[in-house]
Amino acid sequence: MHEDTNPVRRARGDQAELDVIDRKLLGLLARNAEQSYNELSQQVYLSAPAVHERVKRLKSRGVIRATVALLDGPKVGRALLAFVHLETSTWETTRRVLEMSAFPEIEEIHTVAGDTAMILKVRAENSAALESLLGKLHHLEGFKGVKTFIALGTYLERGPLPI
């Protein structure tokens, strides 16, 4: 798996050159990554080996960063979904939060412009587990504040689709 871990380079939005077939393949894979190369080939009118080469190229160029299973939070014991808006006083504090990515409750970390420095997508077992994680954030040097938004329901959850 190739993933660019440099947040500055990833944030620049270096767009890959994609033709119509690449975009169609990406859309098909985004909807169902379990399709075989033969199934994909029938939908884009190429041979299965040609589709395999295109997918391999898209992976090597970092367009496809990973193939993952999208798990159901409640069914795996993480029923509480929250978005944590974290305010920090220094960039160093923000970097320390990035080190917390090892915590399994934290699914995503985004630096943002606006009233907060970061937004964390968190899935916790319950409110006590969320409170424990928030306590760890409160102990960070440079921590200024937090706003937590608990999701009541999820109607759409997906990654970007190709244009």
Rank of each mutant, 00 (worst) to 15 (best):
Glu157Pro: 02
Leu120Asn: 03
Tyr37Trp: 05
Ala113Trp: 05
Ser89Val: 05
Ile150Phe: 14
Lys136Leu: 09
Ile109Leu: 15
Glu17Val: 15
Arg95Trp: 11
Asn6Ala: 12
Lys121Tyr: 06
Pro7Ile: 01
Ala16Tyr: 11
Tyr45Thr: 12
Glu87Leu: 12
Val44Ser: 03
Arg78Ala: 05
Thr93Gln: 02
Arg9Asn: 14
Val8Gln: 11
Asp19Ala: 04
Lys59Ile: 09
Glu34Pro: 00
Met100Gly: 04
Ala117Thr: 11
Val68Tyr: 06
Pro74Glu: 09
Val97Ala: 03
Leu46Asp: 00
Tyr45Phe: 10
Gly62Asp: 14
Val55Lys: 06
Lys147Leu: 07
Lys56Phe: 13
His138Phe: 04
Ala102Val: 14
Phe83Trp: 06
Leu140His: 06
Ser41Trp: 00
Phe103Asp: 15
Ala30Asp: 01
Thr154Lys: 07
Asp19Arg: 07
Val51Met: 09
Ile109Pro: 06
Ala50Ser: 10
Ser127Gly: 11
Arg31Tyr: 00
Leu46Met: 14
Thr154Ala: 14
Pro74Lys: 12
Val76Ala: 04
Leu25Cys: 01
Val44Glu: 00
Ser60Pro: 06
Lys136Asp: 13
Asn38Ser: 12
Lys121Pro: 02
Glu105Cys: 03
Gly27Val: 03
Arg9Trp: 05
Glu125Asp: 05
Phe103Pro: 01
Arg78Thr: 10
Ser127Val: 12
Ala124Met: 05
Glu131His: 05
Glu3Met: 09
Thr90Ala: 14
Asp115Trp: 02
Arg54Ile: 03
Arg57Phe: 13
Glu157Lys: 13
Leu98Trp: 09
Lys144Phe: 02
Asp19Trp: 07
His138Val: 08
Leu18Phe: 09
Leu18Asn: 11
Val55Phe: 06
Leu140Tyr: 09
Val51Tyr: 01
Glu17Leu: 14
Ala113Gln: 11
His138Lys: 08
Gln15Arg: 15
Leu46Lys: 01
Ile119Gln: 10
Arg96Met: 12
Leu133His: 06
Ala129Ser: 13
Ser132Ala: 15
Gly27Ile: 00
Arg9Leu: 15
Ser101Cys: 10
Asn38Lys: 02
Leu133Pro: 11
Val76Gly: 07
Ala79Thr: 13
Leu98Thr: 12
Pro7Ala: 00
Leu156Thr: 07
Ile64Met: 10
Leu46Phe: 05
Lys24Asp: 03
Phe149His: 08
Glu125Cys: 06
Phe143His: 09
Trp91Pro: 15
Pro49Tyr: 02
Leu46Ser: 03
Leu29His: 10
Leu18Asp: 07
Thr148Pro: 03
Pro49His: 14
Gly135Gln: 10
Arg23Trp: 07
Val63Asn: 09
Pro162Ile: 02
Ile106Tyr: 05
Val76Ile: 12
Gly142Trp: 04
Val68Pro: 00
Arg96Ala: 05
Lys56Arg: 13
Pro74Arg: 12
Gln35Thr: 07
Val8Tyr: 12
Lys121Ile: 11
Pro49Phe: 05
Val122Trp: 01
Leu140Ala: 09
Glu141Gln: 05
Lys24Ala: 04
Ala79Trp: 03
Tyr45Lys: 15
Asn38His: 06
Thr90Gly: 14
His110Ser: 15
Pro104Cys: 14
Leu25Ile: 15
Asp115Phe: 07
Glu125Leu: 07
Arg9Tyr: 12
Glu107Lys: 08
Asp19Tyr: 12
Glu157Gln: 15
Ile150Lys: 01
Arg61Tyr: 08
Lys24Ser: 04
Asp19Phe: 02
